[in-house]
């Protein structure tokens, strides 16, 4: 149904603008807060227009570091988050591709049993199994390093399930043509299956990168070393300034910085992302 009456155009735009305003306003406040100095941020009313301290704050955040003793480097936290998110996204995609490949293309005993076992893990996210997982990670000596941060989050039923569905839509003839051409299973996987599902891989990468980036509880639990703090938990730590009032201008600047990489990933992979979620033809 397409209507062109001015009133409907007006209404639909009004609704859209309201929606955007609701989403954008907190970000705007963050930006405004990040551009004032510490003193202004303790006075009421809070400012609604940006100040002139933006670049000073940016420099302070990066060079001096934030937190009580100025010991937490935002740059390092960003790097930690980036590495963790990348490891989670890439690791999940890699493992899921392989497991979906096995489940769809190989006839081994208890195939469906394995599939359902993987499927059941959907009901067991890290938050549910957090204590045993912590125990395992601690026993393996993976506390306070990148492996400990990412591996427990990598095992993923969602991605396996999604790739299974993608592979099921790949026509059988493609496999048969490859077999006649002389491709072995791994050759077929590498040369045909992965390139054919690249848009789905890209879409999943976007989702998983943001999932990894936004992890809070797990990093909080297993990192005690300040050098391993991720940005999302780092922001929370900054608020817990024991004796002094929180440095809102720096916290907000850090928040802005924390938002950038996911935005960059979404914007950069937008086209593939949409194609991967909507395109069905192989």
């Amino acid at each position: 149904m397409v209507e062109n009456r001015p009133i409907t155009t007006f209404c639909s735009h009004a609704v859209l603008i309201c929606g955007i305003a609701i989403v954008v306003f907190p970000i705007w406040i963050t930006f405004v807060a990040a551009s004032h100095d510490a003193v202004r941020m303790t006075q009421t009313p809070l400012p609604l227009l940006p100040g002139d301290q933006f670049f000073v704050n940016l420099k302070d955040t990066f060079i001096k570091g934030v937190g009580n003793a100025r010991e937490q480097s935002v740059g390092l936290m960003l790097m930690n988050s980036l590495i963790m998110a990348m490891m989670i996204a890439v690791g999940k995609i890699f493992i899921s591709l392989l497991s979906a490949f096995a489940i769809v293309y190989f006839r081994f005993p208890f195939r469906m049993g394995f599939f359902w076992m993987i499927f059941v893990t959907l009901m067991l996210p890290v938050e549910v199994r957090i204590l045993p997982t912590f125990e395992v990670v601690a026993n393996l000596g993976m506390l306070n390093n990148y492996w400990g941060l990412s591996i427990p989050l990598i095992a993923s039923a969602t991605a396996t399930f999604m790739f299974r569905q993608v592979f099921l839509t790949v026509p059988d003839e493609l496999l048969e043509a490859a077999r006649i051409d002389g491709a072995g299973p791994m050759r077929f996987f590498k040369d045909i299956l992965v390139p054919v599902s690249r848009t789905n891989i890209a879409a999943l990468f976007v989702i998983l990168f943001i999932y990894g980036w936004n992890q809070y509880l797990w990093p909080l639990l297993i990192t005690t070393d300040k050098n391993m703090y991720t940005i999302v938990m780092g922001i929370k730590q900054m608020l817990e300034a024991a004796e002094e009032s929180p440095e809102w201008h720096l916290i907000m600047m850090t928040t802005l910085l924390a938002m950038l990489p996911p935005v960059a990933v979404v914007v950069g992979m937008q086209k593939l992302f949409i194609k991967g979620l909507t395109e069905t033809e192989k």
Binding site: P171, E173, L174, E176, A177, A178, I192, P195, V196
Partner: peptide, 8 residues
């Protein structure tokens, strides 16, 4: 029948 060309 459906040619089975490698689409990529």
């Amino acid at each position: 029948q459906n040619y089975a060309l490698y689409p990529h």
